[in-house]
Design a protein around this nucleic acid. Structure first.
Length: 755
DNA sequence: GACAGTGAAATTTTT
DNA sequence: TTTCACTGTC
């Protein structure tokens, strides 16, 4: 495509953003304003018209999915863009640290620890830290790293002001360095420290990247800002794109301040606003706007709906979560009959746990779906086991991996022996001046003499097995790689890492171990292991292949189903994961107080939840459905849900409301009706009593005997409309227990007992 | 050191 | 309701 062609489809602001040069650029891009198009066109334009070498362009995104899409679209416009560095922040960090592993004090074959590994390592580093506290401390350490605070930083108290925290952090960091590995936070923090301390490396990097583009800048954290600052030299062209209304990662250290103060941090910045929305029809955009305008802490912008009018959003009140899933199925099936593909639909929810009722029913009704970003697969025991074998082969200083695999299946080397071995680790560091060290393997050899005959034998076999694979994969050969790392994808028929992995899980006894487990518990573990092997197919059976594969699984937990794009399936996804995506038809589920927004939110956090709602609404192109359940099963108990406070912020005149409307919402609707249509009588009691309530009051009056499926016979001791305008009864059962019910939602389980 | 049985806790959101 | 961590026994 020529640049005239791709520039001609842009509106004036977009074109200005693409062609801008000579100063830092901040693009404030509203939802659906063609932000990705602008970035990808800019990449193509810089290469084609400004003679920028593709290799010297760095484009950073937050998710691998976004990176992939950006690369694909840029390549469509300009084939040479495939040489540009388009990565997530974390994968850039991993790339950088592999290039400068030695300077960063890391094993060149390091792998990345996840949150669970952090907790485990922490309990090893600080033995008397209670397990329950460990995950909290681990979380705080992550946050500290998001702010680029080292253990001696006085600001640590802002994160956790317990006096021990800096000690814990320091002990953890020391132990982590001994493993040669990194955690997620290190992937950003260590490059920042290295760039700040080492002028030569800084100059190298600043020379290497002449253009840096950052997407979703509103969700960058302080460490990422510092990384950007360190990478940007006086000659570097910096362009960031973001939307303060879509900042949803505060809990992870995201700092909206980064985008709000960008113009101060980078003096002379040009600001371009993209406010034309090309995605959603007007009523959907209106709903989004009404909701987000309840937030106070925002730059403020007005989106115009370029697509014009369309279908009003639908708000459905639904009895239970099973009905919610049924509602989705019916809607989707009905549309499918009219030719709407399944893939047009996305079901959005606040917490991963909510996907379950949809999965169950979709399976039942043979409705195809894909789950995005479900971490479950990678958290499975058998998967982690297999990956730890690979990690330990790559880096035999990896204490966590070692402990996990050395005694599985049982080899008679329990925690006590493991501690003994790890205790010998310092000796190996001294005796082993030649790099790379064989770490724990050497420590095992030192500890052999003090072990029982049985343990000695199996530990010897363990060492042998690891070393065999290390040799096969050439783990100690120098890495033939400079700054460029443009690996060609492996040939389909070429030998693959998958073959190695398959052999490994057989030889280690993992497959037998899990076959046995499958038979006992009826699980799918062997099948999962097979799936894992499949995921390794594109990687070469050598050192680089292994490291790339491990980075891939550690930095991107979404299981790549190769035929992702071809299969026609409904998308099940958390609201957070929808960032950057769009769908013709969107259903936002679980709009109940305590679910969305989640319970116990401060005012500030509530604004973030509201932004999350805003993000969800603005994903929809043509149709938007919102559902709210009356009751929901949680922890095996049935809970009565109040409607989400966000629903009360909607413009009910611009909604289609269906289902049995709770009186608390009827009140909202009446309040918003034009004065002429308002009913005359408006009793201003605590609870507003509707006609429907009158019927309920008559039927469920005080003193009547009722029968409940679970609790048996009982007497109604109170019947009233509560503060939330919901009709509620108290029933005293024969057991003596008193329970509250909303009879409207209990038609199947609670009935009047005729006497 | 392995395993069965018991009791308590669990659901944020993600790179 | 399910899952996980802890305890006591072999």
């Amino acid at each position: 495509m020529t640049s005239e062609q791709y520039l001609s489809v842009l509106n004036p602001e977009q074109k200005a953003a693409v062609m801008h040069e000579g100063s830092p650029l901040l693009i404030l891009a509203g939802a659906g304003s063609g932000k990705t198009r602008v970035i990808t066109t800019k990449i193509a334009y810089l290469i084609a018209e400004k003679n920028i070498r593709p290799q010297s362009i760095l484009a950073v995104t937050f998710t691998k999915k976004a990176a992939k899409e950006m690369l694909d679209r840029a390549v469509q416009l300009e084939p040479r863009a495939d040489k540009a560095q388009i990565r997530t922040f974390h994968s850039f960090g991993a790339w950088f640290l592999r290039v400068y592993a030695e300077q960063a004090g890391l094993d060149p074959n390091f792998t990345v620890y996840d949150d669970d590994d952090m907790v485990t390592l922490l309990t090893k580093a600080i033995p008397d830290l209670p397990k329950k506290n460990a995950s909290h401390v681990a979380h705080c350490i992550s946050l500290a790293k998001d702010y680029c605070y080292e253990p001696d930083n006085p600001h640590l108290a802002d994160i956790d002001h317990s006096p021990e925290f800096p000690e814990y952090y320091e002990a953890y960091q020391k132990r982590l360095r001994e493993t040669g590995n990194v955690d997620f936070g290190d992937l950003i923090m260590l490059p920042v420290l290295l760039l700040q301390q080492n002028e030569r490396i800084r100059t190298q990097m600043q020379y290497r990247f002449r253009v840096i583009l950052v997407d979703e800048y509103q969700d960058s954290n302080v460490a990422q800002f510092q990384l950007l600052s360190a990478l940007a030299g006086p000659e570097t062209y910096v362009c960031v794109v973001g939307d303060d209304d879509q900042s949803i990662y505060k809990f992870r250290g995201a700092e909206v301040q980064n985008i709000l103060s960008f113009q101060d941090q980078f003096p002379g910045t040009t600001l371009i606003k993209l406010e034309r929305n090309y995605r959603s029809v007007a009523p959907i955009l209106h709903a989004a706007d009404v909701v987000v305008s309840n937030n106070s802490d925002r730059l403020g912008k007005t989106l115009s709906a370029e697509r014009g009018d369309g279908k009003k959003p639908v708000l459905a009140f639904i009895p239970t979560q099973d009905d919610e899933a049924r509602f989705a199925v019916e809607l989707i099936k009905a549309a499918h009959k009219k030719g709407v593909p399944y893939a047009d639909w996305a079901i959005l929810y606040r917490t991963n746990a909510q996907s379950l009722s949809f999965e169950t029913l979709f399976n039942n009704k043979k409705l195809p779906y894909t789950i995005v970003g479900s971490l479950k697969f990678w958290e499975r025991e058998e998967i982690k086991d297999a990956l730890c074998w690979l990690s330990f082969i790559a880096n035999p200083r990896d204490e966590i991996a070692f402990r996990r695999i050395v005694n599985k299946p049982a080899r008679g080397i329990g925690p006590t022996s493991q501690d003994k071995i790890i205790a010998r680790l310092p000796e190996t560091a001294v005796s082993e001046s030649l790099l790379p060290s064989k770490g724990i393997l050497d420590a095992c050899r030192l500890a052999l003499s003090s072990m029982s005959a049985k343990a000695k034998k199996s530990l010897g076999e363990f060492i042998e097995l690891i070393e065999k694979y290390q040799t096969e994969l050439g783990m100690y050969e120098p890495r033939a790689e400079g700054l460029e790392s443009d690996e060609e994808p492996a040939d389909k028929d070429a030998p693959s890492l998958a073959d190695v992995l398959e052999r490994l899980i057989k030889e280690t006894g993992l497959i037998e171990y899990h076959t046995a487990q499958d038979e006992i518990a009826g699980t799918q573990r062997v099948a999962n292991l097979q799936e894992l092997c499949n995921s390794a197919i594109p990687y070469a059976p050598d050192r680089n292949g292994l490291l790339e594969y491990l980075d891939h699984v550690n930095l991107d937990r979404t299981l790549e189903t190769e035929n992702d794009e071809q299969v026609d399936a409904v998308t099940l996804i958390t609201l957070h994961n929808t960032k950057g995506l769009e769908f013709p038809r969107v259903m936002i589920t679980g709009l109940e107080e305590g679910i969305f927004p989640r319970a116990e939110k401060s005012a500030e956090e509530l604004e973030e939840e509201r932004r999350l709602f805003y993000v969800g609404i603005t994903r929809a192109r043509d149709e938007l459905y919102m559902t709210s359940c009356g009751v929901r099963r949680m922890y095996g108990r049935t809970e009565y849900m109040a409607i989400s406070p966000f629903l009360k912020e909607l413009d009910t005149q611009q909604l289609e409301v269906i289902g049995s409307i709770p009186s608390s919402f009827k009140r909202v609707m009446q309040a918003q009706q034009p004065a002429s249509e308002k009913p005359e009588d408006n009793p201003d009691e605590a609870g507003y009593v509707t006609e429907e309530d009158m019927e309920l009051l008559e039927r469920w009056r005080k003193g009547r005997t009722v029968f409940h499926d679970d609790y048996g016979y009982g007497v109604i001791v109170s019947a009233k409309v509560n503060e939330d305008s919901e009709f509620i009864i108290d029933v005293q059962f024969q057991s003596g227990a008193t329970k509250k019910f909303l009879p409207k939602y209990q038609a199947n389980r609670l009935m009047i007992a005729e006497i």
